[in-house]
């Protein structure tokens, strides 16, 4: 049996009376590419916040690789375990060049004194150029990241996760603001990473979900509504009700 890369059990999180996550149970195998969908306010991003240490759950446990309790750790400790995150709105260092963005993301020491004397080694340089090719930004290496187009920033941030060589990638709405062609390329990129890395993708674009998804988890009101293949999920009565129910009723 495969090891769980991530196991969340009975997780609850309340924001000023609003139950963002409610008795959530979520298991994911190592090497899996999982897509999480759900209507607005279903708790998708909150769930990522809880995994990455940005906020702490009120109750429950989130275990990484079946041994490390993530809820006891802070953001950078969790990162160092090998959990990388791409934010919903692309978050890159706007005043740094694309190359420098990747330098800062490369795996390796994160210490203050190391940073004082670290040099970019030829091996690291090669690795960065490799990533730049993968994310289609090879000719933008020395451009300030702030000047990139929205879609390119998204890619740069994915590239930063690649540089980190994370075990678990959390990718929040990677296709947002991308053209159709870019979306397809992003999907291909994520598919090529699955297996080597475990990936959770949060997405709204069902076309994109269909492209990449093997297993889909539907979140609703902070809990898992159902799990299965894209077709299973799209034909599931409950899902149709949650997504379309109200509009159907109105129609």
């Amino acid at each position: 049996m495969k090891e769980f890369i991530l196991a969340a059990e009975d997780v609850n999180k309340t924001f000023q009376g609003f139950k963002a996550i409610s008795n959530l149970n979520f298991y994911m195998d190592k090497g899996e590419l999982r897509t999480v969908i759900g209507p607005n306010g279903a708790g998708k991003t909150t769930f990522l916040d809880l995994i990455t240490g940005r906020s702490k759950p009120d109750t429950g446990s989130i275990k990484f690789e079946e041994k490390t309790e993530l809820t006891d750790l802070n953001e950078y400790q969790i990162y160092r375990l090998g959990v990388g995150r791409k934010f919903q709105t692309p978050t890159v260092y706007v005043d740094h060049t694309v190359f420098e963005n990747l330098v800062l993301s490369l795996e390796g020491s994160r210490g203050v004194f190391n940073a004082l004397f670290a040099r970019v080694t030829p091996a690291q340089r090669d690795r960065i150029h490799e990533i730049l090719k993968t994310i289609n930004l090879a000719n933008k290496a020395d451009v300030k990241a702030g000047t990139l187009a929205h879609g390119q920033k998204q890619w740069l941030e994915i590239g930063m996760l690649l540089a980190q060589n994370a075990k678990l990638l959390l990718v929040d709405e990677p296709a947002a603001g991308m053209t159709d062609e870019e979306t397809v390329r992003t999907g291909e990129l994520l598919l090529s990473l699955a297996g080597k890395h475990s990936i959770i993708v949060i997405e709204h674009d069902m076309l994109f979900v269909r492209q990449i998804a093997t297993k889909v988890t539907v979140l609703h009101q902070g809990a898992v509504l159902c799990e299965g293949t894209v077709d299973d999920v799209q034909n599931n009565e409950k899902v149709i009700e949650v997504y379309l129910g109200r509009s159907k009723a109105r129609a």
């Binding site: 990455t52 940005r54 802070n74 953001e75 950078y76 990162y79 160092r80 990388g84 995150r85 934010f87 978050t91 890159v92 260092y93 706007v94 005043d95 740094h96 420098e100 330098v103 800062l104 993301s105 994160r110 940073a115 930063m160 980190q164």
Partner: peptide, 19 residues
Amino acid sequence: KVQRAIRDSENRVLFSGYA
């Protein structure tokens, strides 16, 4: 570089593993 990164996006710095 980390210094300026903190200035521009401290969150990203934390989520890139830097204390």
